[in-house]
């Protein structure tokens, strides 16, 4: 089955991951800009990073027939440094012109500090000014509920179209507040934190698959890109059809991401072919 990995940090992964993803049906990935594991000191470091994910990383993925797209942003953790963040924000519009950049992300909150909130709001304004899609990271563990509520409060101050905003890393205690405001919701599958494949399938059963994006993120920490395929198997094990699985793991990412026309991958529908057994071969 063809699937799309809508949140994937390719620079932290090996070529072997791309190869195995290609062998297990992945046809496209989208890479948000994120924290490198340490706080960067210079705006130029971010600019080089944006070039890496918009110029070089697509060539690595293409080796295995996978389309690679990306997002640019100052991640919520480094947004604490407002001076650095604003320097980077000034440079971001040049990347909106690149053929594989889909929008601004992942922005959001980490510890929900006043500085983080300011820079989050400035990213949202930049997205509105340049008509960009928005991808939002919600905080980890004990900070998730507070941070998600704060993100929703801040968004209410802007004329954003909820259909163009994806709020990621939702779990059982945050999905409803996101869906109630009409945003796209993401589940991120991790081996230990965030969400598991089984719990993701539970939430699809409870809340339906509309405006839902499932991903495995896959970064430099404990993570596994193939939790997405594990989730596909769990979803099918529960009796869902191939077309239903395609809606969740392929067509939904297309529906959201193709709001930026650069994501030119078409929707897919399964068609059964019943050949006439009497026909010549």
């Amino acid at each position: 089955m063809q699937i799309i990995q809508p949140h994937y940090h390719g620079i932290a992964r090996t070529a072997q991951d791309y190869e195995r993803m290609a062998m297990s049906g992945v046809v496209a990935v989208a890479e948000p800009a994120f924290w490198a594991g340490f706080d960067r000191k210079y705006p130029e470091t971010f600019i080089d990073y944006f070039h890496q994910i918009s110029d070089f990383e697509p060539t690595r993925a293409a080796e295995y027939g996978i389309r690679h797209f990306c997002w640019v942003a100052v991640n919520p953790k480094e947004a604490e440094n407002t001076e650095l963040s604003r320097e980077v924000l000034k440079e971001m519009p040049q990347f909106f012109e690149k053929p594989t950049v889909l929008g601004i992300g992942e922005i959001g909150l980490h510890k929900s500090t006043p500085n983080e909130c300011e820079i989050f709001a400035e990213h949202v304004q930049l997205a509105l000014d340049h008509d960009q899609l928005i991808l939002i990271h919600t905080p980890h563990l004990e900070d998730k509920v507070t941070g998600t509520k704060r993100i929703l409060e801040i968004l209410r101050d802007f004329p954003v179209d909820p259909d163009r905003v994806w709020i990621d890393h939702a779990e059982e205690h945050t999905i409803k507040m996101i869906q109630d405001e009409g945003y796209w919701t993401g589940f991120t599958l991790y081996p230990i934190t965030k969400c598991s494949p089984k719990r993701a399938c539970d939430m699809v059963e409870i809340y339906g698959h509309e405006r839902l994006l499932i991903n495995s993120s896959a970064d430099w920490g404990p993570s596994d890109p193939f939790t997405l395929q594990e989730c596909v198997v769990e979803y099918r094990r529960r009796g869902n059809s191939l077309q239903q699985a395609i809606e969740v793991f392929y067509n939904n990412p297309v529906r959201f991401l193709a709001q930026n026309p650069k994501f030119d991958i078409p929707l897919v529908r399964v068609e059964e072919i019943h050949e006439d057994s009497a026909s010549p071969v």
Partner: peptide
Amino acid sequence: FLEARCMLIEVAATLDRYDR
């Protein structure tokens, strides 16, 4: 801590799944 937290949430989700 995180591993144990993960396993407890999985147990809770299994019990919820049964109830549904």
